[in-house]
Design a protein around this nucleic acid. Structure first.
Lengths: 259, 259
DNA sequence: CCGACCACTTGATCAAAGTCAAGACGAGGG
DNA sequence: CCCTCGTCTTGACTTTGATCAAGTGGTCGG
């Protein structure tokens, strides 16, 4: 976990990034002579929002978050990245500033690529420009997905969707190990830790058990259905015995509410 | 407003787009031979989510929205674009599908550029690849801004921010004409029309008057301050005299509900 | 073994925004 | 002219999520 040099395993991760996948082997060697391998502890800062972008990163192991500090002092998490993901390529190549801050959330190994290294590379193989666009396209899509989620779905639905994305199968039972702390998951999903906790409780009714960082889903399809949920209405608070709501047009039924 | 051909005014708009700003005059001519000028009515569909991307657009006049239909049938607006803005370049050049749907929200004139036209262009002048990245970079930034807004600010704050962005001056008094319907503004800001209406009411307390589509701001700085708002707390519900809510620990007040 | 600290959970309460229903208002068609 | 339609506003009420406060259960250093 603390290797000092790029090995075959690392090369696989690099190949996984869309922007390098089409690169000939020799070009990759050139790139690596410019790049630096970082082994970082938890909570290490990679770059800060608004700083001039000089280096971009590729995750080889561990997790990295991108976020913004708001005027009020909270942080808004914009993305959480894992092995094979590439960070901040765009501001680097356009010569701008980082639009967000970046920080490790676990111990992590990263490849740090200085901008000038890639500019050199671009000259060598021009089609890398299109590959970069492909990479960017993925990021754009991810952001659009997030906006849709935030605008149109409730907390429990976003959590369900997050879990479905983590599930190794698309139907049946499965077990998921949460990849990072609940605190960060909450940020990623745009809610407070307390709300996340309650969201997990809500999902129990559709077959989600949780203990510590282990989540057991009894039927992934059910979860997915709830996440996209046309009929959230139908399964709202499924177990809670609630007296039927008094309708304005009817007489109020005797409130059998347990004290 | 219904010109059939690209004139000098239109060329200005094209030059305003980052991806074409650095293009030599002759290359622009080549581009225009491939492109098509569209004069569209309100509510015309440009492309639909998940369709293969074959054409991208540059807005010459009017307004265009990008949005997603959610499973529940609501639409989540991802962006609203005006003169000089470029839409959907990325999926076109990476050969993917449109991640969102696009529709005009007013009468509009657009330049429709088929992908193959630009691929030809790319061969002619390779540095256009970097220009495209610059353009994309702006889009990314815009999306990140939206996510931060949604996660960290309240409705009235988002509205204040929106108005500040529209204001022609950065301090003092000013008058703003809302560029499109309130319904769409609400969508853009991630709320329902009713909430938008109430958000405007809230802003009255800090010097925002509204009648129809005309907004008068008595001091833009005050608005900007509220939008970034460290001390939202200080000016919450400034004028409204509200009877305190009945507490659960007290006797339930007799429900004066009309039968 | 103890106690401090941490991440997380839970409960009570409150504010923000969604929903439903009704009305105001202007634009356009018969 | 009136009537309808669409947009916007308003009011009453519900639901969601945030906040505050307390409590649980770990881990780690002494």
């Amino acid at each position: 976990m603390n290797r000092r040099h790029v090995d075959a395993h690392d090369r696989d991760a690099i190949r996984a990034a869309p922007m390098f996948s089409a690169l000939p082997e020799e070009a990759l060697d050139v790139l690596l002579t410019h790049a630096q391998l970082l082994a970082l502890p938890r909570r290490a800062t990679l770059f800060e929002q608004n700083a001039p972008a000089t280096t971009f990163y590729l995750v080889l192991d561990g997790w990295v978050k991108l976020f913004r500090m708001t005027a009020g002092g909270d942080e808004a998490v914009v993305g959480v990245f894992a092995r094979g993901d590439c960070l901040a390529e765009v501001p680097c190549l356009t010569g701008g500033a980082y639009p967000v801050s970046g920080e490790t959330v676990t111990e992590a190994r990263l490849l740090a690529v200085p901008t000038h290294g890639v500019v050199a590379l671009t000259r060598a193989s021009p089609q890398i420009g299109l590959a970069m666009l492909a990479s960017t396209s993925l990021h754009l899509r991810g952001l659009v997905d997030q906006i849709e989620e935030l605008k149109a779905y409730t907390g429990p639905q976003r959590l369900a969707n997050f879990l479905v994305g983590l599930a190794p199968v698309s139907q049946g039972q499965c077990t998921i190990v949460l990849p990072y702390e609940k605190l960060l998951i909450a940020g990623r999903l745009g809610m407070k830790p307390e709300s996340l906790s309650r969201a997990f409780r809500r999902l129990r009714a559709i077959g989600v058990r949780i203990s510590q960082e282990i989540v057991v889903v009894s039927e992934v399809k059910r979860l997915a259905e709830f996440a996209g949920c046309e009929h959230l209405m139908a399964m709202r608070c499924p177990l809670l015995v609630r007296p039927p709501r008094a309708r304005l047009t009817e007489a109020r039924p005797p409130p059998g509410r347990p004290a």
